[in-house]
């Protein structure tokens, strides 16, 4: 755990956030997908760029994104695409996955990957969390970016099912981005930096 000391509740030091935005100078164009709720701190941080942010809280209607009896994966992909609601011209530089992948089943991860793939380019990057101890449930948090090397974690009262996918499983089922680096965070979890495969 590497929580910043004396810098306020919920503030977590991150080694990988600086790499996520490395090479992007203030004022440069940047397109970001945030798989979370609209965060004031994230908007404030990203406002230094000429940014286009898409907030898509896929956990808002989780039942619609569960694999059903329909063996056709296209149905799930269409459901995800509808909730992402990305315009046709949107190519993503940064995808903020947070811990979303651990709240969905492997079939949904694959469908999300398929939907994101055509929206990514060779230098797209992602940021999210791994699960080091699969048996340990995670605290449900909303995450935001406080500054270049700090996250903001705010507990929520949501208790969605937590799958704690191993890093190997994520690599196998989330092909749109590749895990490039991982460092230890609190609660036995990892922060993960993704890049384009």
């Amino acid at each position: 755990m590497s929580e910043a000391q004396g810098q306020g509740p919920g503030l977590v030091y991150s080694r990988l956030l600086p790499e996520l935005f490395a090479g992007y100078e203030d004022g440069e164009p940047l397109t970001v997908l945030d798989l979370g709720t609209g965060s004031s701190s994230t908007v404030a941080f990203l406002s230094r760029f000429k940014v286009r942010i898409f907030f898509a809280d896929l956990l808002e209607h989780p039942t619609s994104l569960r694999p059903g009896d329909d063996p056709n994966p296209l149905g799930l992909q269409h459901a995800i695409a509808r909730q992402l609601a990305l315009p046709e011209d949107a190519m993503l530089d940064v995808v903020l996955l947070w811990d979303y992948l651990h709240y969905i089943e492997l079939e949904t991860i694959e469908a999300l990957s398929a939907v994101l793939l055509p929206r990514l380019h060779r230098n797209s990057r992602g940021y999210g969390f791994g699960a080091l101890h699969g048996r340990k449930p995670a605290d449900a948090n909303r995450y935001g970016i406080a500054d270049r090397d700090h996250l903001l974690a705010q507990p929520t009262d949501q208790e969605p099912q937590y799958y704690a996918h191993s890093q190997q499983r994520l690599s196998e089922h989330f092909a749109a981005l590749r895990i490039a680096r991982g460092t230890l965070l609190r609660e036995g979890r990892l922060e993960l930096l993704f890049d384009s495969p």
Binding site: G23, P29, R52, F54, D89
Partner: peptide, 18 residues
């Protein structure tokens, strides 16, 4: 929803990889 803080040329930048 989405927030676009580059209203002048968001379409041209969105399709250009960095």
């Amino acid at each position: 929803g989405s927030i676009d803080m580059d209203p002048s040329d968001s379409k041209s930048t969105a399709s250009t990889p960095k």
